[in-house]
């Protein structure tokens, strides 16, 4: 009976389009089931909320990274831009007494400035995004460290702390923020010209240009959007740890890229679905949480996460090549 059913499903266009994401979803449920059997703490409301809270920042960064990767690029400067926006915001708000809402605006603006600068260089000077953002990675962190002179700031005002640790009807604020980001990202990718052009540029930049698309503008917008989401993450991190520092966010870009890859977005661009990225980020969050609950050492955790990333993408690639 199953084969007939599977065949029926295969003919289904929905299944065709979303097959990677469906398998990621099934994997997520399966991992969840295994963890609930192995520990009694996993399947509790409190723990599930905390998984979501812990995944929220990676989810938000991965959403921006999805645009970048669909356009055929990559952004290695994500963690550094997070540090830039959070550290300068913290310093201005705590040490210079800037209004916290103005502080947040500054964080977002810094993210956009860093992102758009990189986007401009990628578009106009035509240097590969890998190189531009590799440079950005050290430049932005350097700027952040220099600005705060390597020191940390503690004791942030209430609105910031609420954004990092507060909740609405029991749902953590960062989780709500992540949901908003994903709804927005979905709308941009699926419903706007900007989204369609992002796919077109990643799929075939020459054909996109010859269709009259302003490639430079779209690229700058994509990297600016990614920078903006780095700013959002910077604000949430500050609120969560009630402190800011220029050394946060190291390696965040890699987690974001991993979530995008697990979610089925093609690393060569042109193809990808935003909800897949969300699932990818959740898979990573659930595995980390489970390993913590089972008291697996952080060293082993690194090994396991790495294997999961390569494994997930391999399964997808193998299935495709068999076809």
């Amino acid at each position: 009976m199953e084969i007939a059913q599977i065949n029926k499903l295969k003919n289904n266009r929905f299944f065709e389009t979303y097959k990677t994401q469906i398998s990621t979803f099934i994997a997520l449920i399966a991992i969840g089931l295994i963890l609930s059997l192995m520990t009694d703490k996993f399947l509790t409301g409190k723990n599930l909320l905390s998984v979501m809270r812990q995944s929220s920042i990676n989810s938000i960064l991965a959403a921006g990274m999805t645009f970048v990767i669909i356009s055929g690029g990559i952004d290695l400067s994500v963690g550094a831009i997070v540090a830039l926006s959070t550290a300068i915001m913290g310093d201005l708000v705590v040490n210079s007494g800037l209004n916290p809402f103005m502080g947040m605006a500054v964080a977002l603006l810094l993210g956009v400035i860093a992102g758009s600068t990189q986007g401009l260089i990628i578009a106009k000077v035509k240097i590969p995004p890998f190189i531009v953002t590799l440079g950005g990675m050290t430049v932005w962190r350097g700027v952040a460290l220099e600005y705060v002179n390597g020191s940390n700031v503690y004791g942030l005002p209430k609105p910031l702390i609420w954004l990092g640790g507060g909740d609405v009807l029991g749902i953590p604020a960062p989780v709500l923020m992540a949901l908003l980001v994903y709804l927005g990202a979905w709308f941009l990718l699926k419903k706007t010209k900007f989204g369609t052009y992002t796919y077109a540029i990643g799929g075939n930049e020459v054909a996109a240009r010859l269709s009259g698309i302003n490639i430079d503008k779209i690229l700058v917008l994509i990297y600016s959007l990614n920078g903006l989401l780095c700013g959002v993450s910077g604000i949430l991190i500050a609120g969560r740890i009630n402190a800011t520092s220029a050394v946060v966010g190291v390696g965040y870009e890699l987690d974001a890229i991993a979530a995008v890859a697990i979610g089925g977005t093609s690393m060569s661009g042109g193809k990808g679905i935003i909800w897949g990225t969300l699932l990818g980020a959740l898979v990573m969050g659930v595995i980390r949480n489970g390993l913590n609950l089972m008291r697996v050492s952080p060293y082993y955790q690194q090994i396991i996460i790495g294997v999961v990333i390569v494994g997930a993408v391999s399964i997808d690639a193998l299935r495709r090549s068999r076809k």
């Binding site: 010209k193 796919y199 075939n204 996109a208 042109g270």
Partner: peptide
């Protein structure tokens, strides 16, 4: 292949790519 169309994009989007406005 290289210049005319985005191969991994759908027919409808390719048809409308130059006239999204």
């Amino acid at each position: 292949k290289k210049e005319g169309l985005v191969q991994i994009l759908e027919i409808d989007k390719n048809i409308n790519l130059a006239s999204m406005q």
